[in-house]
Computed example of a mutant assay.
Amino acid sequence: MALMALTGLAGCSSRVIPPARTQAPAHIPPPVRFAPVAQPRPAEAPRALNAVVQSLGAGFDGQVGIAIRRMDQPWTIQFDGYRKYPQQSVSKLWVAATLLDQVDRKKVAMSDPVVVKKEDLTVFHQPIRSLVGADGYATSVAGLFGRSMTASDNTANDSLLRTIGGPEAVRRFFAEKRIEEIRFGPGERLLQSRIAGIEWKQEYSQGNAFYTARANLPMDKRQKALEAYLADPIDGATPVGIVNALVKLQRGDLLSRSSTLQLVAIMRASKTGPQRLRGGLSPGWTFGHKTGTGQELQGRATGFNDVGILTAPDGTDYAVAVMIGATRKSIPERQSLMQAVTRAVIANHRP
């Protein structure tokens, strides 16, 4: 019955449903083809600057490492920049940074009192020695900080080193801040006596006692000690490692903003080495730095260094390190090399 009903319904309809009319397709525009977005090319080191650096390094009669890094770009120019060179007093910069890190952590205050006594005296350059009387010399952490960084006073620096917890405190700072390719030595007295080939005695801190003890050593022993130091300096650092650390400092990756500004300001106030890298400055450029100078033996100079932050009039910063491991060149010739590096950076600067 259901089938008959369906058949009847189908037969009752005589209307024919015409097929749907197909309209002409509208005009379809061709697909839009976008040009690929040009990716910015990574900044390249100035070729002219690189050529000058390679020429200066290769043409210098001695062991020299050079590194330059523009802080707002990823490139680094270097000549033998991955060899470890003796830092000497460049290492005072790391004592200062560790100190300010402890100031940031409220472990130390710049106003903390310190008394420097005769048993605290070290060796070589220590202008503070003339102030140390029978009762010592009363000063503060800030006072020692200023003397260490602006005058490179060895005794002031070693006193700060004791304040912050010794060499291990600096090495912990390196590890925490991921500062690589920089070593820190045992402190001025042990470092310099080891380089000379003698064992430290506190009496060497007075007058010319250290020079006399060193001069009394057989020459072959002195040469052997110096060669061992140059081959694997206990305070060694690579120029590339140093410029990378300076970039971290300037970017605020090591210290608080106030401590960063304080450290950079005192680097600019440094009075040492005015004819090293600073001697090549042009008007409007500034330079904050730390120098280092090692021992000499039979006309061979070691550890003649200058590292710092070079700032253009437009505010662009460069980290620069020139480290002379060993040479027989005169001081003016060493200074001339450093000044040439500064002038090359300035000549090739583009805002």
Rank of each mutant, 00 (worst) to 15 (best):
Met71Glu: 09
His349Met: 05
Glu181Ala: 14
Phe124Glu: 15
Val322His: 10
Lys84Phe: 07
Ile128His: 02
Thr212Gln: 15
Gly143Asp: 07
Ile309His: 00
Leu310Ile: 06
Asp235Cys: 02
Asp317Leu: 04
Glu119Gly: 13
Ala215Thr: 08
Leu100Ser: 10
Val16Ser: 13
Glu188Val: 15
Asp61Pro: 01
Ser270Phe: 11
Phe79Gln: 04
Leu246Lys: 04
Val243Arg: 05
Ala347Gly: 06
Lys106Met: 05
Arg194Tyr: 04
Val116Met: 02
Val103Ile: 15
Ala151Tyr: 13
Ile309Glu: 07
Asp253Gly: 04
Gly252Pro: 05
Tyr211Phe: 14
Leu277Asn: 09
Leu161Tyr: 03
Ile195Gln: 12
Tyr137Ser: 09
Gly8Lys: 03
Lys329Asn: 07
Pro42Trp: 09
Ala38Ile: 11
Gln73Asn: 11
Ile77Met: 05
Ala319His: 05
Arg178Gln: 15
Gln54Cys: 02
Thr139His: 03
His125Gly: 00
Met4Phe: 09
Tyr82Arg: 12
Arg222Trp: 05
Asn154Arg: 02
Arg147Asn: 03
Ala196Ile: 04
His27Asp: 14
Arg171Thr: 10
Arg251His: 14
Thr291Arg: 01
Asp104Met: 07
Pro274Phe: 02
Gly146Cys: 12
Ala209Cys: 01
Arg178Thr: 14
Ile68Lys: 03
Met149Arg: 10
Pro218Lys: 03
Gln202Thr: 09
